[in-house]
Design a protein around this nucleic acid. Structure first.
Lengths: 133, 133
DNA sequence: TAGTTCAGTTACCATAAGGTATGTATAGAT
DNA sequence: ATCTATACATACCTTATGGTAACTGAACTA
């Protein structure tokens, strides 16, 4: 799908419809976004179901409103399951689906790749000041 | 860094400071975002420098204000070079850096992974309606 | 003298994202 | 009768993102 040419440039071959392409980009953007990524990460570390409050405690800085929204979106995308136990007070457990786990591994892989290159990124940030007008 | 355990769960081992971790997440989020990704993609396909107007034409739907912002951010992150030729009217060329090209290959790899799994994502989207309150 | 070109900048506006604070339902404990 | 716990929903407000439209500057052209 992506090949490096011998002149150092890259070639991208696409076999998707525009709709599929757009959908894949959207999923990529969602899965890499701050809150979904952190929520999935917490659920992966838990290695099992977590109650709403436990997730809220562990995802530092998130509000319960945004956590609710994030979990609902993840559920709608099939990345997380929501299980309601009709007790009083209610108990709701969230867990990563296998698909969510696989996606997370891929995203974390990219994140680690970036982390390994951080020195390069820092070095590349405006080494001199050549580009002023 | 990421290992799948034999019980099907995953283990994440981190050796970064919080600051490095946050920076890597930020770069991940930026590189996966809609406009930066599309701009980098166009520049990669061009296999060489492109003038501002050419990029503007090829990135469908972007406004020149946002394109300017996007290119400046990519430049500040060392993913794109900006070369000003002091003519009248001015000529400015943008080109992917090697680092930008490498990052793009990684991001596009993830994007292609998602694209290959699109049937799974579609199948996982609310197959029945079990989770109503 | 006025118009064209290029790569922006600036002002203004609409929408989205996200935060805080408060309300809600229900059963059990005090 | 009141309080507590849980998982939200809702109202309200601020900030961020992004779009449109108009303006700029300097040289060349008609």
């Amino acid at each position: 799908m992506v090949t490096e040419l011998n002149d150092g440039t890259f070639d991208f071959c696409e076999t998707l419809t525009d709709a599929e392409d757009a959908l894949a980009r959207e999923m990529l953007e969602r899965a890499s976004a701050k809150w979904p990524l952190r929520v999935m990460h917490i659920l992966a570390e838990a290695k099992g179901p977590l109650r709403f409050s436990r997730v809220l405690e562990r995802v530092e800085g998130i509000s319960q409103k945004v956590l609710t929204q994030t979990l609902r979106t993840l559920e709608a995308d099939g990345l997380v399951t929501r299980t309601l136990y009709p007790q009083v007070p209610p108990r709701v457990e969230y867990e990563l689906t296998p698909l969510g786990g696989e996606l997370l591994v891929e995203v974390v892989g990219l994140w680690q790749w970036i982390a390994n290159r951080l020195p390069d990124f820092e070095a590349a940030r405006k080494p001199k000041g050549q580009t002023e007008n």
